[in-house]
Nucleic acid binder design. Structure first.
Lengths: 339, 339
DNA sequence: TTGTAAGCGTTATCAC
DNA sequence: GTGATAACGCTTACAA
C-alpha cells in the first residue's frame, strides 16, 4: 500500500488535481461524470487527503486547544474535567474539529508555554480556568475572537464565556435547606476572588433572606474545592457553632470531606445534620449517604463552549456572548428536616 | 505584528533561509557569527517556526493520539482517566510531543473513525482499552511500531504495552485479608475475557492457597468495574453467604458500591466486615471509611506508555516490550481482623 | 467545466 | 559554511 496523494488520485480518475480537490471539498463547477469518477477512485483506494498539507494551504488546522492548569485544584481527580472535556470533544468532533488537551504548569519555560498555544497549529482555544485565561489573553490578544472561556471572568468581558448560573444554583440548594426548617446553615465556598464564588455566596444570602434568616459571617468560609476544606471546617464548626444543623458546600468534593468529618464525630446524616453539595458529580450518588446536590450541566458547559468557539471561527456568531446554563437540584439522602 | 516566516527572519539576519533552518534545528555547519545573528533576530521578533509547514516537510507531526472508548467503562468518572492522561501528557510534553485525546464511540461513522487515527496527523497512538486497540490494529496494521497499549493484550503480542502487575496486586490485597484472619473472602472482578481479570483472579487464588483456604467458585463474581456491581453483589452475598467477612474488589469504584450496600444493611465496616479496593484512586481516601486499597501507579502507566512510544518513534527502542509496574498496598480503615 | 500554476512555510539536497 | 532549489501535498486564482 503505497502513499496516496491527490495527484495519484487525479491520474487514476483521469482528471486534474483541481477537480479532485473540488470534489473533495464539495465545490461547485464540476461535472457529474467527473465527480463520480473521482469518488469511485477515492472509494476504491480509501483515500483521504493529508490534513497537514491542507492546513498549510488553507491556513487553518481545524484543531482546537483545550487548556487548563496542572495543579490549580482537585477537579482533575473527581470526574469534573472528564465530563467537561467530553462535552468539548464531542461537539468538536461533530463539527469536524480535533481537540488537543493540555495542562499548563507555571513551572514551564517560555518555549513550552508558547508551544501550548501555538497559533499556527490551533484555530482556537478553550480555557478552563483563570490562570490559563490570563496566559491565553496575552498571546492571543490580537485575535480574541478565537478564545472562549468556561466560567465567566469579569476581567475579560470581550471574550465569550459559558457558565452555570451560580447564583440560581446556590439559591436552589440553600432554599431547599431552609424549606426543611434549618436556620443555622454553614456555607463553604471555593476560590477567593472569583465571580463564581461571589455569585454562589449571593445565592446563599438571598435564600437566607427569603427565609427571614439573618446572615452571619461566621458561618461562611471561603477556601478551596478540596475534601480537606470540608473536613476541616466541619471539625471547626462542630466546636464553635454547635447549633449548626446544615451545611451548603459549593462543591461535591467539599461535601465528601464534610461527610467524613461528621461521621468521625458520630453525627448522623441526615438525621442530625444535613449536607448539600454542588456539582452533581457522578460519584456523588455513591457517597454514603448518597449526596443531595445542586447539579450543574458539566458536560453541557463543555459542549456549549465548543459550540460558541466554532460558531465564532465559522463567523456564524460575531458577538461576544456570556451564556448561563441552568442548575438542577437533585434530592438524595443527605438532607432532611431540621432536628 | 505581521506574520513572520523563515524568509523574513533570514532577510533580517542577512543570511539565507537555509542557515536559519540549520540554526533552529541545531544542525552543524553554521558559523558562530551567523548563528548569533540569527538567534538575535529570532529572539527579538519572538519567532517560532510554523509546525504545520515543518510537518509537511519532515513527514512527521510530533503529535501523538490517545484513544479510548466513550462508553466502555466508568473510569471516566472516577479520576482514573485523568491521572492516566496526565501521565501521558507530561511525558510527551517533556519530550516535545503534543497529545490529542479522542474518545471512540462505536456509533461513529467510517469517516470519523478514520479521522480519529489519521496517520497523516499522528506520529503514534496510545490505546487505553481493548476496543480501540482493535480499531487501531486494523488501521495501523502495517506499522505496528507506532502503537502502544495500556494493559497487556494477549492478542497483540507484537505491540508494546504497559500495565500494573495485576497478579501481584491482587495477591498483596488478598494476602492482607487472610493475614487478618479472614477465611471467607468474596472477590468481585471487572471485565470478562481480559488478561487483567485473569491475572487478578490468579493473584486472589494464590493468596488463598498460601493461607490454606480452599477456593470456592461461588465467592467470585466477574462483571464490570461499576459501583452498581459492588452494590448488587454485596446484597446477594449477604443473603446467600452470610459467613463472608471480607471482600476483595478489583476496583475502588466497585468497593464504593459495596460500602454503600454494607451501610444500608447496617453492617459495620471494618468491625464486622472488611473491604479491600484496587486502584488507589484519589477519592478512595475520602470514602467512609477511608478505603484500604491496592494502589496501582496510574500516572506512571501513562507516563511509561508515552515513553515507550516515543522511544520507538525515535528508534531508541526497537524491541516489543511488555512492562509491568508495581502495585502498592495502602492500608486505611476498611480492613480489620476477622470478627 | 477543466487544467495550469502559484502559493502555503518548512526541510533537505547539492552545488559552490 | 553557505545559498539556490526542489520537494512535501494540498487549495485556489486565473486562464483556457
Amino acid at each position: 500500500m503505497e502513499k496516496l496523494t491527490i495527484d495519484k488520485i487525479a491520474k487514476l480518475a483521469l482528471v486534474s488535481r483541481s477537480v479532485v480537490s473540488r470534489v473533495l471539498n464539495n465545490h461547485p463547477n464540476v461535472s457529474e461524470e467527473a465527480r463520480e469518477r473521482v469518488l469511485k477512485v477515492v472509494e476504491k483506494y480509501n483515500y483521504s487527503p493529508n490534513p497537514v498539507a491542507r492546513s498549510l494551504a488553507t491556513q487553518h488546522t481545524r484543531q482546537i486547544g483545550v487548556l487548563t492548569s496542572r495543579f490549580k485544584d482537585e477537579n482533575l481527580d473527581n470526574g469534573y474535567w472528564s465530563q467537561l472535556y467530553l462535552g468539548v470533544f464531542e461537539e468538536c468532533i461533530r463539527r469536524g474539529y480535533y481537540v488537543r488537551l493540555s495542562f499548563y504548569d507555571s513551572s514551564m519555560n517560555d518555549n513550552l508555554r508558547r508551544h501550548l498555544l501555538n497559533e499556527h497549529q490551533l484555530d482556537g482555544l478553550i480555557c478552563l480556568n483563570e490562570e490559563v485565561t490570563d496566559l491565553a489573553a496575552e498571546h492571543f490578544a490580537h485575535k480574541e475572537r478565537s478564545v472562549v472561556i468556561v466560567g465567566h471572568n469579569p476581567r475579560y468581558t470581550t471574550i465569550s464565556s459559558v457558565d452555570v448560573d451560580n447564583q440560581a444554583g446556590a439559591h436552589k440548594g440553600v432554599s431547599h435547606l431552609t424549606g426543611l426548617g434549618h436556620r443555622v446553615i454553614g456555607g463553604i465556598f471555593g476560590n477567593h476572588n472569583v465571580q463564581e464564588t461571589e455569585q454562589r455566596i449571593s445565592g446563599y444570602k438571598k435564600a437566607l433572606r427569603q427565609a427571614g434568616i439573618e446572615f452571619d459571617e461566621r458561618l461562611v468560609h471561603v477556601g478551596s474545592y478540596s475534601q480537606e476544606e470540608g473536613y476541616q471546617m466541619v471539625n471547626e464548626w462542630l466546636a464553635s457553632v454547635p447549633e449548626m444543623t446544615a451545611l451548603f458546600c459549593a462543591g461535591d468534593t467539599i461535601a465528601m470531606g464534610a461527610l467524613l468529618a461528621l461521621k468521625e464525630n458520630n453525627i448522623s446524616v441526615p438525621e442530625r445534620f444535613s449536607v448539600m453539595g454542588f456539582d452533581g458529580l457522578p460519584i456523588s450518588k455513591y457517597l454514603i449517604p448518597p449526596l443531595t446536590t445542586v447539579a450543574q450541566p458539566i458536560y453541557g458547559k463543555g459542549e456549549k463552549a465548543a459550540a460558541l468557539l466554532i460558531d465564532q471561527l465559522q463567523k456564524k456568531e460575531t458577538r461576544t456572548l456570556h451564556i448561563d446554563l441552568s442548575p438542577e437540584l437533585i434530592i438524595r439522602n443527605t438532607t432532611a428536616p431540621a432536628p
